[in-house]
Simulated scan of single mutants.
Amino acid sequence: MTTSTYDLPAAVANVPLAQERFAATLATLTDAEIREPSVLPGWTRGHVVAHVARGGEAMVRLIDGVLTQRPVAAYPGGPTVREAEIELGAQSSANDLADEVYSANIQVVHAFARMTAPTWGRQVQFPTGAYPASRCAWSRWREVEIHHIDLGMDVYTIESWPEEFVACHLPHELAKLPGRLPSNAAVQVGPSRFGTGDVVATLDGPDAAILAWLVGRVGLAAPALTISGDLPELPPWS
């Protein structure tokens, strides 16, 4: 089991690489393929791509707020407006969606390049709460890599995730696992036990598959996992 910890330079360096891989996959999609179901229930691939584009724009807004030292919402108008924008974007053509992602990707890279050690430490307001601005880099890296597999394309699967991505993010997701388990449950993941319950299930397999399970991509993870006992269903991941 890898135990590498998250670090900001790794995230900043890997965001453009992840974005480039995602954009390369989008360049192969036709209008018919963009309308096909994604891994996410109720969402087409177009929804996933629109979400990634809007997510990039949100990160740029937060960084701009940090640099101008003014409060900024990641998604002005709140969840309702955010969902409406994704729904609208999902109806766009494959080429238009690819262009939106390409534009957002460039803006993200330029925004991150303007940051310094002190500004990365300033607080920003995510929909889930206040965090250091460094979360923008970690979040963008995570979002692009995870939503890339959500497209459900053979060209990019959990096995395609870079080792550095898995090594950086797996420890953080494992640390959150006890709080997501039912009170009577515990899960043995490799050599480590999580949770204090008496009902123990064991889970083993490649780190990428374990990470996929932790972030709610159970169907993508299952073929590579060895499971013993009744593995508890985790609440929705965020």
Rank of each mutant, 00 (worst) to 15 (best):
S4G: 04
S4D: 15
D7T: 07
L8D: 07
A10D: 11
P16C: 09
A18C: 10
R21K: 15
F22T: 04
A24V: 01
T25V: 15
L26W: 07
T28F: 05
D31I: 00
E33V: 07
W43N: 02
R45Y: 01
V48Q: 06
V48I: 09
V49R: 12
V52I: 01
A53E: 05
G55I: 00
G56H: 09
M59T: 14
M59F: 12
M59D: 15
L62F: 11
I63F: 07
I63E: 04
I63P: 03
V66A: 11
T68V: 09
T68F: 02
Q69S: 14
Q69G: 09
R70D: 10
R70S: 13
V72D: 07
A73E: 15
A73M: 13
A74M: 12
A74C: 07
G77N: 06
G77C: 04
E83G: 00
E83C: 00
L88F: 03
G89L: 05
S93N: 10
E100C: 10
V101M: 13
V101P: 12
Y102Q: 14
S103R: 15
T116M: 05
W120E: 09
G121N: 13
R122D: 10
V124K: 08
F126R: 12
A130N: 13
A130Y: 06
P132Q: 06
S139Q: 13
W141R: 06
W141S: 02
E143G: 03
E145G: 00
H147T: 01
L151I: 04
I158L: 14
C168K: 05
A175I: 01
A175F: 04
S183E: 14
N184K: 09
V189M: 01
P191G: 02
S192P: 02
S192H: 13
G197F: 05
D198Y: 01
D198V: 05
V199D: 14
G205E: 11
A208E: 14
L211Q: 09
L211Y: 09
G216I: 11
G216T: 11
L220W: 02
A222I: 01
I227L: 06
S228V: 00
P232N: 02
W237L: 01
S238F: 11
